[in-house]
Write a protein that binds this DNA or RNA. Structure first.
Length: 416
DNA sequence: CATCTG
DNA sequence: CAGATG
């Protein structure tokens, strides 16, 4: 609105002359005057041409927020954006970035925390969120995200996404579905699918050159696409925890478990439910069980865990993404409450000996783990999720000396 | 690193 | 078995 905005707008919009040419190219003729800069890998959809849009970078870590402040010092904090627009944009950006990673930018662009921040602010279901509310939960240093918010405020759109053609949009969408990575997402987009419903309508339809069908696990993920993007509120996980607890007590009181991940760190929202299970009978990893059978041994620990959860109505045969002898990935749902959302649950078995390490390692956060590993190395130890042992010299990669494993019985003991 | 798909 | 995925 103010004249101050204009230079920025210009930079944003005009910074990509190549975007324009690329758009013409994709809609119109197939002229190949693409400037092949850099040593970028050739990728199917030519996302690389978009890189320049992202050149609207900042010099300081709080560039866009400062910019906002400067342009509208009194009012900016009260400006709002539709919750759904914010969430959708962040999800798209996260997907776009994983499909098309920028050359030397960090993998994590901070859209996860941004999503968390917005969902947190809108927990009560409010349909718009103000800058101040976002700021309450999201670091001002997260400039990539603030840049996107800035664009939304100014133009109501995000240039990077606006510049996509239909096929690229579809790939970005599909990449948000559980089990759809770069390859699969691009394959189906390339095969002509544009929406999740396209992929759902006829489950037997064959897609693309390889005549690929939608697998059962893919179908499951597609059916629950929207639900699976929602974060899980802490109290729901707490409810689930007590249900799991009684299910295990009923099935086998020797079964113990812990819910790790962000939940264990005390966070209010988690992206999934990460359960670690152990049992006194399961100490070291069962050596080379003949895995010629694709189905589970009905007596194995994992199947007993599964049965316990199934009988409690927490798991369902038809809602399983994958199951092996150590791990199950599935959807769960609070029983009885009809409208309850399907949540992603990961269940892993852990040998009792590595339990404290596993719990520690899977609870994080990453910063703490890095710190602990460095300290272990300084002391001549190696620390990982399986244990801590004397460091074996003569290797560039820290190696554990056999038999020198430090047996600990609690996480507390790991802190020297 | 464990699991699935082809 | 390789390659994809989380």
């Amino acid at each position: 609105m103010t004249t101050h905005f204009i230079p920025i707008v210009r930079r944003a919009v005009l910074s990509g002359p190549r975007i324009a040419s690329w758009r013409y190219k994709s809609t119109g003729g197939a002229n190949s005057n693409r400037i092949s800069t850099k040593k970028t890998k050739p990728r199917q959809l030519g996302f690389n041409d978009l890189d320049e849009v992202s050149t609207l970078q900042s010099n300081s870590p709080t560039f866009h927020l400062d910019q906002l402040k400067q342009e509208d010092s009194s009012g900016y904090i009260h400006r709002t954006l539709p919750t759904s627009k914010l969430l959708e944009t962040f999800r798209e950006m996260m997907s776009l970035r994983s499909l098309n990673p920028l050359p030397n930018a960090p993998r994590d662009h901070g859209f996860k925390p941004a999503l968390k921040a917005v969902e947190l602010a809108a927990l009560d279901g409010q349909d718009s969120v103000s800058i101040s509310e976002i700021l309450a939960n999201l670091s001002p240093e997260n400039d990539i995200v603030w840049g996107v918010i800035y664009q939304l405020l100014k133009h109501g759109l995000t240039p990077e996404i606006d510049a996509l053609n239909d096929e690229q949009r579809a790939a970005v969408l599909f990449n948000r579905v559980h089990g759809f990575g770069r390859v699969k997402a691009q394959y189906f987009a390339n095969a002509g699918a544009r929406t999740v419903d396209d992929l759902l309508v006829d489950p037997d339809r064959q897609w693309g050159e390889k005549a690929r069908k939608i697998s059962p696990a893919e179908l499951l993920a597609l059916q629950h696409f929207a639900e699976m993007e929602l974060m899980v509120p802490r109290n729901e996980i707490e409810q689930l925890r007590t249900l799991i607890d009684s299910a295990f007590k009923k099935a086998d009181p020797q079964l113990s478990f812990e819910i790790v991940g962000s939940f264990r760190r005390g966070e209010a929202l988690s992206s999934d439910i990460d359960v670690v299970v152990w049992h006194p009978s399961y100490t070291c990893r069962e050596a080379a069980t003949t895995k010629s059978k694709k189905k589970l041994e009905p007596d194995s620990l994992i199947s007993r865990v599964k049965q316990a959860l199934c009988s409690a109505g927490l798991l369902n045969e038809h809602m399983i993404f994958s199951q092996g002898e150590r791990k199950i990935m599935a959807l769960t749902q609070l029983p009885n409450s009809t409208g309850s959302v399907h949540r992603q649950i990961d269940i892993r078995l852990c040998p009792t000996t590595s339990l404290p390490y596993m719990l520690l390692g899977n609870t994080g956060d990453d910063e703490l783990m890095k710190y602990l590993r460095v300290r272990a190395l300084e002391k001549g130890w190696v620390l990982n999720e399986y244990g801590m042992a004397k460091r074996l010299r003569g290797h560039t990669i820290p190696t554990m000396e056999e038999g020198s494993g430090i047996v600990v019985s609690s996480e507390k003991e790991i802190f020297d």
